[in-house]
Design a protein around this nucleic acid. Sequence first.
DNA 1: CAGTGGTCTAGACCACAGG
DNA 2: CTGTGGTCTAGACCACTGG
Lengths: 233, 233
Amino acid sequence: MNVPTAQTWQSVQKEVLRRIHAREWKPGDLIPNEAELAKEFGCARTTVNRALRSLAEGGLLERRRKAGTRVAAQPVAKATLNIAVIRHEVEDRGARYGYQLALREARIAPTHISAALGVGVQERLLHVMALHLSNDAPYALEDRWINAVHVPDALKQDFRSVSANEWLLQNVPYTRGEISFSAKPASAENANYLNCPEKSALLAVDRLTWDHDQSVTVVQVLFAPGHQMRTRI
Amino acid sequence: MNVPTAQTWQSVQKEVLRRIHAREWKPGDLIPNEAELAKEFGCARTTVNRALRSLAEGGLLERRRKAGTRVAAQPVAKATLNIAVIRHEVEDRGARYGYQLALREARIAPTHISAALGVGVQERLLHVMALHLSNDAPYALEDRWINAVHVPDALKQDFRSVSANEWLLQNVPYTRGEISFSAKPASAENANYLNCPEKSALLAVDRLTWDHDQSVTVVQVLFAPGHQMRTRI
DNA sequence: CAGTGGTCTAGACCACAGG
DNA sequence: CTGTGGTCTAGACCACTGG
């Protein structure tokens, strides 16, 4: 009945969460509007808005003008994976990072690559393959094509000491991208680099990034067998 | 020099993004503080705060009191994957959803399961395996253990028409969870259910959820070969 | 049309951390 | 100590959309 006077948006959020978890507000239920909650909590409506908006972004509430705010019937868990520079990923795990350039060539790309990058089939693109190591063991294999038409400076880099991964992030902006996660069997070449049996199950992360309407790069990162990407929800 | 008068936080954010993409503000650079930007844009500081805070949440800016706001040197891409009810996932792809319960038994669990769930090794837990179908083809195999000590109602469900996946989401709250993504080779049993060759590379999603200090369920979802989880960054 | 969330404002105080 | 972001407030207007 009586509710502790809340004054910060976090405390409002905490109380709202408590009611949801305690099933006082059940999945699908309409909850009081912002003005009523503000009155109940003794705070400004802005504060309630901040608390509820944040929960809605997390998928736990569904808000619509005029229709009000409901507890999500089947909350969609949002797993946020941080895709950092591979070197940092390794170092954050407390391991020693190593890097080996495996291949670097400027050439006409396979059609599925030039199509993905939206460039003419006759354009020479930069193909880079590199192995990332963790404590001297293979950690991930990076297979990348760079749109040399949009990023001509890449042709001047040898990528022997700085990975394309890092160089691009520091030097070439992108405005949007697509990313996909899948499992793939190791090819003979993959197996050779990653020092694992052929056809091992590998976690693959494929990325395609764009700078406005110009593609920047398409890359596949294959992680060594057993690799996990973790997060909290 | 002259900047369009911005009045909404989205327009402020857009202009800030433009400057970052145009390299007017380079990775690692300190940008003007909120008060200065508010003055320049002719809006309230609150509005600038909203725009910058949102970019910081996305990893593009790094903000620290007193130290100010910097453009992230190596922005960490945050890929947000929506983990929805599998039925919705299938239906959203425009396919017909199907469901087959493969196994349901209450028994003493393997020790790594009872350990993960934090229950005594002698406790009877509920083990459920089910196949999710898309247009009659195997889509995903769900292998789940439910903490029957914390969720005794689960023992009353037969899970023949409603999957444990959906039943739990609608009936049992959770406050936190862990999730991990990996690639695994199909076991003989996996291959049988998913109708694929043994040792196929399968994308695996492992989840463990908690309601305060009580574990709720641990589940592994194995997707049929070739499955991709996609998102934008 | 009217109720709801979305946002902006101007001012204020506070928490934190750099110097 | 002081500059910076973090937040709260009270009030206002607006945009969307359900009924």
